[in-house]
């Protein structure tokens, strides 16, 4: 398969600095901001309450870099308090839609990073972005994103779960395209793992198999 030349993108680096992680998306921080926004507690600082999952768990930003997962990925999980369990259905639905939008934004962030990353890596005299297999992977991820955003808010928990699973697949495609840099905890690999945990807690497809 011969490389297909691609036009240089604005802002593209000639030589990547592989030791420098890409700009963080900040998934855990944004998750907490979503809790605060939905519960109207966005007066600054961490919210006092969070939105519970259907099973009564709460996922929040709490970094524990030297601890176990999910603390290493900036998240902690605890049972919801009685006050949190009383969060009404509309707020829960708004949180569900917000979490899906956050997942979409993270996949887009990773896609943009992958474009820059692959444009700056060369093989056989051409950049990796010019390889058709690479192009197809990036295009697939972009199409998945386009479709998700066009679909509107999912109706019901199962539809929400299915949408997250599609985004997980798109995210995994991008992480494969990032090579081993996609397996570093301080880059998109770590952030997407956090998003996958959030989807697993808040938007699970149920157990009907």
């Amino acid at each position: 398969m011969s490389p297909t030349a691609v036009p240089t993108r604005p802002g593209q680096q000639a030589d990547p600095a592989p030791g420098v992680p890409p700009a963080p998306f900040g998934f855990p921080r944004r998750l907490d901001a979503l809790h605060a926004q939905v519960l109207r507690e966005d007066a600054g600082g961490p919210p006092a309450r969070r939105v519970p999952s259907p099973e009564g768990l709460v996922l929040l930003a709490a970094a524990d870099p030297d601890g176990s997962s999910p603390g290493r990925f900036g998240l902690a999980c605890r049972p919801a308090t009685p006050e949190e369990l009383a969060v009404p259905a509309p707020a829960r639905a708004a949180f569900g839609a917000g979490l899906l939008a956050l997942h979409c934004d993270l996949v887009e962030h990773t896609l943009r990073h992958a474009l820059d990353h692959l444009a700056a890596r060369t093989s056989g005299g051409a950049d990796l972005l010019s390889r058709q297999l690479v192009q197809a992977g990036l295009a697939d991820a972009a199409l998945a994103l386009l479709e998700e955003r066009a679909g509107g808010p999912p109706a019901g928990q199962d539809a929400l779960a299915r949408a997250h699973l599609r985004l997980v697949a798109a995210g995994r495609t991008l992480l494969r395209l990032l090579g081993a840099s996609g397996f570093l905890a301080d880059g998109p690999g770590g952030e997407l793992h956090a998003a996958e945990i959030a989807a697993n807690v808040y938007a699970h497809p149920g157990t009907e198999g």
Binding site: E55, S69, H204, T207
Partner: peptide
């Protein structure tokens, strides 16, 4: 991915071994 789905909501929290395997296996790709 399938196991995380089949073991129910919050499976990646309630089954730390699965959560670890879920992260570990991605390395084999590279």
């Amino acid at each position: 991915l399938l196991a995380a789905e089949l073991l129910g909501p919050a499976s990646l929290i309630e089954h730390p071994w699965l959560e670890k395997a879920y992260r570990d296996v991605r390395a084999f790709e590279y």
